[in-house]
Computed example of a mutant assay.
Amino acid sequence: MGKFLNFSVAVLTAAALAGCDTVPAPRLVQAAPPPEPVSHEVPYRWTQGNAPQAYKDMVDTFGRHGLKPGEYVVASTIPQGETRIVVDLLTQMAYVYRGDKLVGASTVSSAKRGMVTPLGFWSILEKRPFYRSKKYDNAPMPFMQRIDGYGIAFHGGNNPGYPASHGCIRLPMKFAEKLYGLTKVGSKVVIEG
């Protein structure tokens, strides 16, 4: 190593004395910066923090980091209190609270491309154990819970794991039934995405 260093210094010194400016100066190689920490936070278009918190509550309550299409979890005991539903359009999940306690979570299927599931704060306006769509070929909407004046509702239906509805929030059938039993007209809903 010493011989190589002496040779390099000799070459650079000779080039400098000869007036040669074509010998490049030694480059310092800077180490690459450490990689950014991987974040498991998801970028929301509109959020009040309910959906990210609901996900954390699901992990804490049920020990689950996600659900497969059509899958849901429900607490074995349901406390008293007001029911509140948080829907996360980005991850296609719904979370149900009684008071401040998460009591259930489910996959959903919201509006497909070209259709809209509206973001924002809503309330259950109407409930019917069985209903048929007036807009879409009399399609069945079991355990229907309408949240707006245009017909957007929670109901049981196909839950493929991606947005596929005309705007409604489809739930696995058994979960739709359980949710129907937990809510009342006036129950609060927040939809984020």
Rank of each mutant, 00 (worst) to 15 (best):
E41K: 15
V73K: 01
Y136M: 06
V59F: 07
E82Y: 06
A176Y: 02
Q53T: 12
S165Y: 03
Y72G: 01
V185H: 10
L28Y: 14
Y136L: 07
K101I: 10
V73N: 02
A14W: 05
G70N: 02
L179I: 06
L179H: 00
Q145T: 08
V116Q: 13
P33Q: 10
M1Y: 13
E177R: 10
K112H: 11
G186Y: 09
D88V: 03
S109Q: 01
A31D: 12
L179V: 05
K101R: 15
V59H: 08
A164F: 02
R170L: 00
Q80D: 15
G149V: 11
R45M: 11
D148A: 06
G193M: 05
N159S: 11
Y180F: 15
G157R: 00
I147G: 01
E192L: 06
I78D: 00
L28H: 13
I191H: 04
R98I: 04
G161F: 04
G2S: 15
R132V: 09
R128F: 05
C168P: 00
M1T: 13
D137T: 10
Y97D: 02
C168I: 02
A15S: 15
V42E: 14
Y136F: 15
G149C: 08
A15L: 10
M173Q: 13
K3R: 12
A18Y: 14
V87I: 14
T107D: 04
T91G: 08
G161Y: 00
T107E: 02
E41N: 14
G120P: 04
G114A: 09
R146H: 08
G157L: 02
V190S: 06
E177N: 13
I169P: 03
I191W: 03
I78W: 07
A164P: 02
H166G: 06
A94V: 10
R128Q: 13
E41Q: 15
P140H: 12
C168M: 06
G66H: 07
S165H: 04
T83I: 08
L5N: 14
K184H: 15
L67D: 00
V42R: 15
E177K: 11
G66D: 07
N50C: 09
I78M: 09
V190H: 04
A32L: 14
N138S: 13
F4R: 13
Y150A: 13
A176R: 01
K178F: 14
K101W: 06
V42D: 13
E192Y: 06
K188G: 06
G81S: 07
A51I: 00
G120E: 10
V103E: 02
P79C: 08
